[in-house]
Simulated assay, not measured.
Amino acid sequence: DDAGGHVNNSLGYHYHGDTGMTTRIEQSDGHSAMIGYALDGYGLYAKLDDEDNEATELDECRGHTDDTRGYHYHVLSLESNEFLDCFYGAWAE
């Protein structure tokens, strides 16, 4: 749909990318806006910050740590058809 999501029988409604149409929690320090939480409980943040820069030094799961947010992810672009490459933390199916 226009928000980058759809429904399937096993996962229910879920997103495949950040279109900017979901709720965003802007960060007072210019960091990328928070857009949700991953299945492992870590925060999901938009790909680009307030100045349209992408976060640097991301790990293989597109995450990193800062003093304000702790460990968190930065999502992939909508064209990739996924938010993340992998999960840093554990999650139950």
Rank of each mutant, 00 (worst) to 15 (best):
N81F: 11
L48S: 14
H74T: 05
L11P: 00
F87G: 00
H31E: 14
I25L: 06
E51D: 15
Y13L: 00
N8M: 01
E82H: 14
N8F: 00
D50I: 03
D40M: 08
G43A: 08
F87I: 01
G20Y: 04
N81L: 08
D49K: 04
A33C: 05
D67V: 09
T68V: 15
Y73E: 03
D29G: 14
E60S: 11
H14K: 03
S28H: 08
Y13V: 00
M34R: 08
D18W: 03
L76Y: 13
L76H: 14
D85S: 08
E26M: 07
Y45G: 04
V7P: 01
V7M: 06
G89L: 11
N81Q: 12
A55T: 06
H6S: 01
V7A: 05
H31C: 08
D52F: 14
Y45L: 02
C86K: 03
L76M: 15
L44T: 02
E26H: 05
Y15F: 07
D52P: 11
D40E: 13
D18A: 01
N8V: 03
R69P: 12
D50R: 15
S10A: 07
S80P: 01
R69Y: 10
Q27I: 00
E51S: 14
C86D: 09
T19M: 03
A55E: 10
G17A: 02
G30P: 11
G30M: 13
R62M: 14
E54G: 08
G41F: 10
H64D: 14
V75A: 03
Y13R: 00
D67K: 15
Y73I: 02
